[in-house]
């Protein structure tokens, strides 16, 4: 079995978000970069668990990005995986990124492709579905549980107000979220081993980006909280009804 996990680099969840060059670029100064939490905690860990159960399984990681992604991909390899592939290209367009992943995946012949549910910076929730379409594979999104028996995967996926259980025969693309696995901390042995694992850099396929970010905006600041005394709950209800028109 061959597994591919898609890894992206995102600003740490506590990062202050600011922009530069007339609000056209993200201000990267002072930003700590992390592995996108959904990719690290759920997609990658579940793939590692599958490999631990099946010694013949091969686990590859892929990221589409510049050389600044190398520390992130090394950190991912420290958790597990046999080798990493970085497609040397930068773009925020989902179709462009997905096409690069699909190109690599076509050559790799993977049985299982995991992505995170979404990146916490551009919040597309798009790459997994696009990769599946480009590879003509089934796609199960927003998985909260993933079990494998032979070539049959049983997956719980989020629906409005609950979950549904589905069955699919490999190959399949799955986007992972909370529930699929438990976060792991890399250990010293993993970190040492990651140094010598192969990280292949490949040049991108010629693909046109179909979207581009013209500019960014920050939300308008809140006017400030109106405090109501704890013994005057009726006043809060009045404000919500008459002023905010929220109830």
């Amino acid at each position: 079995m061959k597994i591919l996990v898609c890894i992206s680099k995102t600003p740490d969840t506590t990062s202050k978000i600011a922009f530069k060059e007339g609000n056209t670029k993200f201000e990267e100064n002072g930003v700590q970069w992390i592995i996108n939490p959904y990719d690290e905690w759920y997609a990658l860990v579940r793939a590692i668990e599958l490999k631990e159960k099946d010694a013949s399984a091969v686990l590859h990681l892929i990221t589409v990005g510049g050389a600044d992604c190398d520390p992130i991909i090394r950190k991912s390899l420290a958790l597990g995986g046999d080798e990493a592939i970085r497609v040397n290209a930068e773009s925020s367009d989902s179709f462009y990124i997905a096409s690069q992943i699909a190109e690599v995946a076509k050559q790799g012949g993977y049985d299982l492709i995991f992505t995170g549910k979404e990146t916490i910076d551009y919040n597309g929730s798009s790459i997994g579905g696009m990769v599946a379409e480009l590879l003509n594979m089934p796609y199960v999104s927003l998985a909260t549980k993933f079990e494998l028996a032979g070539t049959t995967a049983t997956i719980d996926r989020e629906i409005e107000g609950g979950e549904e259980v589905c069955e699919v025969t490999l190959p399949v693309v799955v986007s992972c979220q909370k529930g699929v696995a438990e976060q792991r901390i890399p250990n010293m042995r993993g970190i040492m081993a990651a140094r010598t694992k192969p990280l292949k850099v490949v040049e991108p396929a010629a693909v046109e980006a179909l979207t581009n970010i013209v500019s960014f905006e920050l939300p308008a600041p809140k006017a400030g909280v109106k405090l109501v005394a704890a013994d005057n709950v009726a006043e809060l209800v009045r404000l919500l009804h008459e002023e905010a028109k929220a109830i």
Binding site: F95, G124, S125, S126, G129, E133, S141, T211
Partner: peptide
């Protein structure tokens, strides 16, 4: 949940740009 599963597929299938959310 349905849109997240389907819209990206349709976009890629039609080679259409997707603005999600």
């Amino acid at each position: 949940q349905t849109g997240k599963a389907v819209a990206p597929r349709v976009a890629a299938g039609l080679k259409a740009g997707l603005a999600s959310g």
